[in-house]
Nucleic acid binder design. Sequence first.
DNA 1: TATTGTTATACTCTATAACTATA
DNA 2: TATAGTTATAGAGTATAACAATA
Lengths: 171, 171
Amino acid sequence: MAERTQYEELMRQFSAFGAVRRELGRIMPSDCPGGSAAVLTLLDRYGDMRMSRLAELLSVDMSVTSRHVAHVVDRGWIERSPDPADKRSRILRLTPGGRAQVAELSRRTAQLLADRLSDWSDEEVGQLIRLMARLRADFGDCRTAAPRHAETPHTSHSPHHELEHTTRTPA
Amino acid sequence: MAERTQYEELMRQFSAFGAVRRELGRIMPSDCPGGSAAVLTLLDRYGDMRMSRLAELLSVDMSVTSRHVAHVVDRGWIERSPDPADKRSRILRLTPGGRAQVAELSRRTAQLLADRLSDWSDEEVGQLIRLMARLRADFGDCRTAAPRHAETPHTSHSPHHELEHTTRTPA
DNA sequence: TATTGTTATACTCTATAACTATA
DNA sequence: TATAGTTATAGAGTATAACAATA
């Protein structure tokens, strides 16, 4: 448990982080805004999934997810197949063009981060990753579940909170 | 210098951070959205200033700053006085009502963070603060300049990059 | 001619609510 | 009746560009 002045300082850091986010957004391809990039990246990491699962991973309402997905489908980067097990659902899958786009996004972000964080050690970057992962876990995020490729070893010290999410408008 | 897969993971953490930001936004008073809160907090921390300085601190275009400031002035939280030294400029200053609003914002954020980060040690919170401060410094932010109350000791290890900012549309 | 600030316009992201189709 | 997904609408944040007033 920390002091209140520390929480205020942390809040200022959160607020200022917007500048980093915007700079990263500016280097993205003009036809692939942040929402589309997030959809592609999650599909690449976790594999084929339904809309509801994607909304959960994005931590946004499914209506928002639907818009992002529609944009990405229009570009030919993913395809929506009907789910044979549930005709209400649709399965999302990356196309080859989508994978190429993911590679391009990855290339651009890695390039910018390598430039800006050139004097950060491997350990320091890892420390920031761990702290931010814990932060969003403690804020009820669900992305701590094991990804498809199991690249990040999530030892069972952080509960998943999967059921705390709505993904749905109260309606 | 870190590996590329680490940069990709860091990028995912940045993307996922949006969920934290949105949850913090939801607990704010309905007539005080994020932009207004940022204006009030910066004026409280750095004292009276001109529009251009505020835009620099917010790391957004001055047109955006102008909109945020207009909203806050409408609520009576700050006042715009003419600058006797330069008739084009206006000096921004918190009103007593503005200070009360800052206190309320601080109370709400501290309460949410104390709840969500209840199992974080003082040192861990401090570590996250330091890493995020360094992150935005390396992304060319200007808020590393000494604040009014000198609460954060910024020893001269991080150059300011003040001149890298535009704050201005190329027009 | 350059700078400070404002306003108009457009785009992105998000949530709420109403709706269709299926379970 | 409940759930999966879509669409319409509204609000917030931001950037670009054109503009007025002053330096």
